[in-house]
Design a protein around this nucleic acid. Sequence first.
DNA 1: GATGAATGAGGATTCATTCAT
DNA 2: CATGAATGAATCCTCATTCAT
Lengths: 175, 175, 175, 175
Amino acid sequence: MRADARRNRSAITSAALLLARERGEAVSMEDIARAAGVGVGTLYRHFPDRRALLEDIAVDTLRELLDATRAEVGRTPAWAALLRIVDHCVALPLALTKSLITSEPERPELPELEVEINALITKIAAKAQREGDLRADVPPTEVVRVLNVAVCRCGARADDHLTRVVLDGLHTPKN
Amino acid sequence: MRADARRNRSAITSAALLLARERGEAVSMEDIARAAGVGVGTLYRHFPDRRALLEDIAVDTLRELLDATRAEVGRTPAWAALLRIVDHCVALPLALTKSLITSEPERPELPELEVEINALITKIAAKAQREGDLRADVPPTEVVRVLNVAVCRCGARADDHLTRVVLDGLHTPKN
Amino acid sequence: MRADARRNRSAITSAALLLARERGEAVSMEDIARAAGVGVGTLYRHFPDRRALLEDIAVDTLRELLDATRAEVGRTPAWAALLRIVDHCVALPLALTKSLITSEPERPELPELEVEINALITKIAAKAQREGDLRADVPPTEVVRVLNVAVCRCGARADDHLTRVVLDGLHTPKN
Amino acid sequence: MRADARRNRSAITSAALLLARERGEAVSMEDIARAAGVGVGTLYRHFPDRRALLEDIAVDTLRELLDATRAEVGRTPAWAALLRIVDHCVALPLALTKSLITSEPERPELPELEVEINALITKIAAKAQREGDLRADVPPTEVVRVLNVAVCRCGARADDHLTRVVLDGLHTPKN
DNA sequence: GATGAATGAGGATTCATTCAT
DNA sequence: CATGAATGAATCCTCATTCAT
């Protein structure tokens, strides 16, 4: 792949990611192309269609999240690892990602990555329970769902009120 | 208003509500009409345009929520009242409602109703704090936001894991 | 025909005539019905369709013009008769009438009436030529066309500049 | 602008001009596109909406008429210049142009061009009066109105009966 | 016989996608 | 390879006409 092609591809991905975050899933291809500084034709050279572009963004997103999550496996205390993962999610368009996964995506990586990430988080959650920081009455697999919701709304950060409340709900009360 | 007109109007509202919940805000008028068993023309006789139809649903929704909330003001314990309100929200398309309010609606009732409902919930939350059931370190006005999120995702129920965790996060721990 | 039916019919005709004059041929049936103070259904009871209504107005119009023209036949001087006919046309929606006749009307009366009116005017014009008031080098049948145009634009009156110029063009110059 | 785009744009303009002349202002975008041999999308690439297309035609028309009129200023005899201008108008859709100017057009050029053209014609008319060819009792500004009407109906030519009559009405009789 | 609600074909417009330059 | 013009299916909306009340 030529240097300019690679540059274009990443310009498109960045623009799409930005616009998708701003205006939701309803971005037009024309707008993405304009924001990336290329013609629509170039966009379609890199991605066969709209869905492919969005799914590609989602795959990139999840791969990055997988890496970040892998880096946290085994760290102690596990509870702090969970908090770092949540913080990491803030910048990611997980709402878009979620909606794509739900609607039968072309790319098999999408559900696969989700499964893999969830498995890792479940593992970390189980460890946090053993360490006594995570409520024991919530199944570790459920922790994932809870975090998902806390994180999918825009701009969740581990230190704002809402997320704090959610995390407090998961945390084992220390008297 | 004639009997059949009333029947059609409510068929349209129901269909729109259902589809909006299923497929988000992107429902086509054609689809709503088909689901309601009427022609598009009938839609437009009852509602001047797409936006008017959706806003009308939202107003109905909020009016109903306001009624339900009013019925809970003053009941004791206030914490239980909050739980009942959350349960009530499950069936309502609050995500749609929220997005309409955000985008400069035509109908002034929409923001007005929201303000009124939030004021009542804030009042109930304050009472719950005085009664020692709601965490004192969360401002009552913030409780509204937390509940909003817990409830806007589809299918929250006060007894499912996610909502329980959120509510647990708000609840005062009894040792 | 019952009294109220007759009243409705004429209310519809009047309203249609008024609106057609104001907003051109693009009046909606709904608007005509509203202006006439009846429901659309009533409108369709009296006239099978839009075209029928408009053609009916046109027939009425031309019948009235025929009567007025007949009254002028034989009067002297014929030139003065022509001027009175022109003045009479001001209040009539002749532009609409013309456009209906051009587009293959259902009602045979329309072309028939036009032919009959034109024949009478031609006759009067020939007389005016014999009396020395109308230019001899314009065929009498052509006078009709000239008057038509002078009169079809809105508001021609025998004493406004445009019409005066046209009539002056027809008039025999008296030295 | 690419060659094919320019070709398409002018095909659209020509088709629209033709159809507007034939069937009045009520031409559908679909029909214009078909007549131009392009898809509707192409229409909308060149013109943001229906009104823009029609106004564009009108601007082109008036610009051309302005050029033609400018070329006649100062020529002698002025009366012959007026006749040439009238002849030039035959091919132009001045009726459409007039109706657009009346209805608050977006493009400011439209009224501006009209004013400019009328000023020039008024000037030529005044000269024709000084030269003794144009009736002195018609104000030069009024000449414009008279010519407008003579010309706005389809197919006026300086040598047909109607126009001749109108022009004769304006002309100073030579005995 | 009057009413106005329902219908749906038709017109304007948008946008994902294809293709000539 | 990049570009942006062309395409046409899909969507919103209007209005002449039909039909239940």
